[in-house]
């Protein structure tokens, strides 16, 4: 359906029916507060799906269920099912480390580790590829270069790979945060408002990059920026008060929303 000359491989799978993520009756509580109500949500492979909705509607929470990073908080209870590439991630024998290898995540604020640019790129790779620390240097350099090229950062940073990543500009940091996910070849990329800490120019650059990754990765992106959802996604899902209200092709949602609440939100009557 989507042709991309950049796509290097098809994401790994079982029986997925072309779905990257599928939730069934997903409910979630933070302590006693219920943040998600019976969410049924499908994300197709190889495209960009945007999650929109007003603050506190549960869009980030939904995103964070997919790699189970929500559970860091400790007082989270989940019910229902989340399948990633056909595998239930809430099954009791799931290893979080392996899940998170498949599902990369980009945070709202760029959060490179306080180590060199090179080590940031290799961090996940060393975690997931046994013995990779002893790999020949040239191979590792190759991985670093490839990852940085994919995020259009190579030319800017190739001469300072040993510098601390925290010294980069925010735009470069966010691109690096995307780049460091790529060497372990995740199937799905989650992006939690990846541009909200960036200025308009940087936002444009990062959006462009995300668009380039489309096809190679299945991408789920949370945004509160209507314009961004509109220009940088194939499908769009609108959430309100912990419920999924509408999920359709982006152009349809912004032109002829089926739901009155969606229409109101898109037109800026609240949010």
């Amino acid at each position: 359906m989507y042709n991309h000359d950049k796509s290097m491989e098809t994401p790994a799978t079982g029986t997925t029916n072309g779905l990257a993520i599928r939730t069934e009756k997903l409910s979630l509580w933070y302590g006693t507060f219920q943040a998600l109500f019976d969410v049924d949500f499908d994300v197709k492979q190889g495209i960009i799906t945007a999650l929109i909705g007003p603050s506190g509607c549960g869009k980030s929470t939904l995103l964070r269920c997919v790699n189970r990073i929500n559970e860091r908080l400790g007082y989270v209870r989940t019910e229902g099912k989340v399948d990633v590439m056909g595998l239930n991630v809430y099954a009791p024998d799931v290893e979080l480390a392996q899940l998170r290898k498949q599902v990369g995540m980009v945070f709202q604020r760029p959060n490179p580790l306080p180590i060199s640019i090179r080590d940031n790129i290799l961090f996940g790779y060393h975690l997931h590829v046994p013995g990779s620390k002893k790999q020949p240097k040239a191979e590792k350099e190759q991985i670093v270069e490839e990852a940085l090229r994919q995020v259009l950062l190579w030319d800017q940073v190739k001469d300072r790979l040993d510098r601390k990543a925290t010294g980069l500009s925010l735009e470069e940091q966010q691109k690096l945060c995307i780049a460091r996910l790529l060497p372990v070849k995740p199937a799905v990329l989650l992006m939690d408002e990846p541009c909200s800490a960036l200025d308009p120019k940087a936002t444009e650059a990062v959006e462009e990059l995300i668009w380039q990754l489309r096809g190679t990765y299945s991408i789920l992106i949370v945004t509160h920026n209507m314009a961004q959802a509109r220009r940088a996604s194939d499908e769009c899902a609108f959430m309100l008060m912990g419920k999924l209200v509408e999920h359709t092709k982006t152009e349809e949602m912004f032109v002829t929303p089926a739901n009155q609440q969606t229409a109101d939100y898109i037109e800026g009557r609240y949010g």
Partner: peptide, 22 residues
């Protein structure tokens, strides 16, 4: 900063790897 821990955990580091490497 907790963001470092979150970043490393999201990349699939175990608790001990987060502590030792980050």
């Amino acid at each position: 900063p907790d963001e470092y821990r979150a970043a490393a955990e999201a990349m699939g580091a175990t608790r001990w790897q987060v502590i030792r490497k980050v």
